[in-house]
Design a binder for these strands. Structure first.
Lengths: 110, 110
DNA sequence: TGATTATATAAGCACTTGATTATATAATAA
DNA sequence: TTATTATATAATCAAGTGCTTATATAATCA
């Protein structure tokens, strides 16, 4: 059972356009920070700060692989299905991901 | 289909402890402002401002009856079931409502 | 080792938020 | 009509938000 305070924290964490887009991307696959920078066309510090906010409510998980840190959705989270329900109502972000793949830039930082 | 911007606005509107509690009360019944003031133990202007915020995203409806303005959940809202899903995970607010009824204060302003 | 790449963090700043106090508006009661 | 009750709005202010720029940390490469 959630508390009202925890629900507030969670909704504030996901209730921002950039963070909603990040979550939407992560429903498709896991991505490293530099890929999200490319997909969202925002500065790296800004993306890192948004990821931190999402990490704080534990809706995303991080995993370092060499130079890169990959982020994924936390499928064990109490509100994971709730998040999926929401993102299912939002425009899918598949097109931009496909562009990355086609351009051979699935990891494009270097 | 929602837009990311509309989803952000909506989550910001419901993502606040007092507003979540208001919504939770409204899943049980409709209430006038003065009842919500009593239930939530907050100032009348503060409650009115929270109600305004919820009205702006149209998740609640208002209806004047004499001196009182009653608020209810908008069951036609695109995100109504989403909201019910969320409140179902939060502690129910039935006890406090029952106290009002027992005290014969279901409309206690005057 | 030093240079490069990837990511995180800190400081600064404009903007938003949520409370309070004061006041305006709307309906009813005397 | 005037007084009272219910609700909405406005002004103020401290705290939070999200961006930018600058810098720190972490891993890899030459």
């Amino acid at each position: 059972m959630l508390t009202y305070s925890v629900a507030e924290e969670f909704l504030k964490a996901i209730g921002e356009e950039t963070r909603l887009k990040i979550i939407s991307y992560l429903t498709r696959d896991s991505f490293c920070v530099c890929e999200l920078v490319e997909l969202l066309q925002m500065s790296q510090p800004s993306i890192s700060q948004h990821l931190k906010r999402l990490r704080q409510v534990e809706i995303i998980l991080e995993e370092r692989r060499g130079k890169w840190v990959f982020y994924s959705l936390n499928k064990e989270h109490e509100l994971y299905t709730f998040v999926l329900h929401l993102t299912s109502m939002l425009p899918p972000k598949t097109d931009k991901i496909q562009s990355l793949v086609v351009d051979g830039k699935r990891i494009l930082c270097e």
